[in-house]
Every structure is written in structure tokens, then in C-alpha cells.
């Protein structure tokens, strides 16, 4: 096999939201929702962004989709033919061709489908707008898409209220696939679903990935789902990536104390093993992204923090090949994962 090709290269991405006060809307500060995030997505893989609420994973996803305008940084997209483009700097018109290649699956199947439009319109809208299909041709296309996501093609005249949560999510997936995208950003795509429906949806996402050679940027907080679906995982904390590694390594040998704590908090789904795992209890609270502490944002809660952690912001660096971590002590710490080392 050849070297995996990079599909998307995010470099030092920053998204800051101004905090405005008073009648004159004076800017009194910035919420640094995403503050210097770099990662690369390889064609055909599933890269997951995990972290707790407010860590900036959703904002990162939305910046990649250019729903938001990044404050700084580059989002280098490698189109099928031609040189890489920096999506961060493009305006609405220039973005249009790339909107077809990068699509999104939303978290809430309720609010992401316009209740006033039938499925045909919801799924077919992007085909019509991009001048790909119209009239009966559009109906055939949408029916075909519905079949691919496991819904009956006859459903295309129905309205969203006629579907269950899992089926609505399938409609959302059909919409994402309609333009034959290369990258799909799935923002908590299965979090709102029930366990049994979640399993169906995860299987569907994997089948579609294999069928259409899709690349996923999977944003989630449920670590067992993430472990199941991802090739590589990036852990975020207060606007930064603290660790990035392939799934097996991350779960077996985390290199950042926050990852270790996060993993240890995952409930063990076997009552016989109850209490067998040493749980790391994090004290304090997640730092405020408007006023992050100096140095490493995790240091107030970290058991290994020293003077350097309090002063100097650690950069994300390669600890061992393919395993990046943003911790000053990544090499010297022996951290515990929750899965045995792969043979």
C-alpha cells in the first residue's frame, strides 16, 4: 500500500468569539473556543475529536465546514485534482465547489430537518441547488439515496414528523451523502439516539464508509462509541488538542494525564469488574475558555503539575512516532490506559 494521502490539514486553527458588553457593544474579551488546533485527516480514515462539553470540538468541526469563520490558522483541503486550497480564507462564493466535498451530519435529528418540507426536498435540496438533478431525475436520485441508508424509497413524500429518531438520522445521513462527498463531519451523530438505534446507525456509517470511500471527522463524547468507530483519536481540552494517537495506543498507553483521567472515568460495563479499575478523580472544574489559566490549561487539576506546567504552555509534539501529546512530562510519566496492549 502507498503512503496514506492527507485529505485535510488543519494548522494552528483558532476560533475566538468576542465578548461584547454595554450599549456600544464594546469588546471586553474573547472566548477562545478553539485556540491553536492542528491535525491532519488521512483519506479513508475516521478521526475522532473527543472531549468534554465546552472543549471546542464542535467549534472545530464547524470551522472545518466553514459554518464559522476561523480567527486564524489554515484549513488546507486537498481536492481530487489540483493543489491544496486554504478553506479558511475563502469567501462564500469561492467556497461553493468545496461545500460539495465536505458535508455534515448533525447531532439532533429533530432540529436539523425542516419539519415543513417533505423528505424529497430535504435530501434533494442540495442536488437541485447545485444543478445536479431536477424533476423526476431528482426523485430517482433521492429514492436511491433513501434505499442506501435503509429507508423505503416510497417515503420521499413524507414529512419528518412521520419518522422515528433513528430514521430521521438516516434522512440526515442521506442528505450528507447526496453530493458524493469525500469528507463527512459527524457532530455527535449518534449521541441523541437510543442504544439499539445507535448500533444500527454506527453500522450504517461504517458500511457507507466502505462503500463510498468516505473519510469521517467524528465528533463525540462517548468513548466506547469512539473506540468502536475511530482509526485515530484526538483528545481536546479547553480549546486545544492535548493528545492525538491511533485508537489502540490511546486506550492502552495514554500520554497525557487528562486522557488518562478521561479514560478512567468510562463506566466499566461488567458488574463483576466493579471497583477493579483505579479511578482518577479530577478535582476542580474545567477552565473557563475566556480566561484560561497560564501555562497548561489542565495544570490546576493535574496530579503531576510542576512549576513549568504553571508557566509554559506545552505544545503538541510527537512523543513516539504517530503519537502526539501536549504535556511537558509526556515521556517521564507512566500513565495507565484501560485496555490491554495490542499484541
Amino acid at each position: 500500500m502507498t503512503e496514506p494521502t492527507t485529505l485535510l490539514d488543519v494548522r494552528d486553527l483558532k476560533v475566538h468569539f468576542p465578548i461584547q458588553k454595554g450599549v456600544l457593544r464594546r469588546v471586553v474579551g474573547h472566548v477562545k473556543a478553539v485556540d491553536g488546533v492542528s491535525f491532519a485527516i488521512r483519506a479513508g480514515e475516521t478521526l475522532s475529536l473527543v472531549g468534554e462539553s465546552g472543549c471546542g470540538k464542535t467549534t472545530t468541526g464547524r470551522a472545518v465546514l466553514r459554518i464559522l469563520k476561523p480567527s486564524a490558522g489554515e484549513i488546507l483541503y486537498h481536492p481530487k485534482d489540483g493543489p491544496p486550497v486554504d478553506l479558511a480564507g475563502l469567501d462564500k462564493r469561492a467556497l461553493r465547489p468545496y461545500r460539495r466535498d465536505i458535508r455534515m451530519i448533525f447531532q439532533d435529528p429533530q432540529s436539523s430537518l425542516n419539519p415543513r418540507l417533505p423528505v424529497l426536498e430535504i435530501v434533494g435540496q442540495c442536488l437541485r441547488t447545485n444543478g445536479i438533478a431536477n424533476g423526476t431525475e431528482l426523485e430517482h436520485r433521492v429514492a436511491d439515496l433513501l434505499r442506501r441508508v435503509g429507508l423505503r424509497p416510497e417515503y420521499l413524500r413524507r414529512y419528518p414528523h412521520a419518522f422515528s429518531g433513528g430514521e430521521r438520522q438516516r434522512i440526515g445521513i442521506a442528505r450528507a451523502l447526496a453530493l458524493s462527498p469525500r469528507l463527512v463531519v459527524a457532530d455527535e451523530a449518534v449521541s441523541a439516539l437510543d442504544v439499539s438505534v445507535q448500533a444500527q446507525t454506527l453500522n450504517l456509517l461504517q458500511d457507507l464508509q466502505a462503500e463510498f470511500a468516505l473519510t469521517y471527522l467524528f465528533i463525540a463524547h462517548d468513548l466506547s462509541v469512539v473506540e468502536h468507530i475511530s482509526d485515530r483519536i484526538a483528545v481536546m481540552y479547553v480549546g486545544r488538542i492535548v493528545e492525538l494517537a491511533d485508537t489502540a495506543t490511546l486506550f492502552a498507553r495514554p500520554a497525557h494525564p487528562y486522557t488518562e483521567a478521561l479514560l478512567s472515568a468510562v463506566p466499566i460495563d461488567d458488574p463483576r469488574l466493579r471497583g477493579s479499575r483505579a479511578r482518577i478523580r479530577l478535582g476542580g472544574e474545567v477552565a473557563d475558555p475566556a480566561r484560561p489559566p497560564p501555562g497548561c490549561a489542565f495544570h490546576p487539576r493535574c496530579a503531576h503539575a510542576d512549576a513549568r506546567c504553571r508557566a509554559e504552555i506545552p505544545v503538541l509534539r510527537e512523543v513516539v512516532p504517530g503519537h502526539q501529546a501536549a504535556c511537558h512530562h509526556a515521556e517521564s510519566l507512566t500513565l495507565r490506559g484501560i485496555l490491554p496492549e495490542a499484541a
Partner: peptide
């Protein structure tokens, strides 16, 4: 769904 429409172009 408005965001989705924006992404739809």
C-alpha cells in the same frame, strides 16, 4: 436546518 441549507449551497 438553516445551517444545513447553507451547507447545501
Amino acid at each position: 436546518f438553516v445551517t444545513a441549507a447553507q451547507l447545501d449551497g
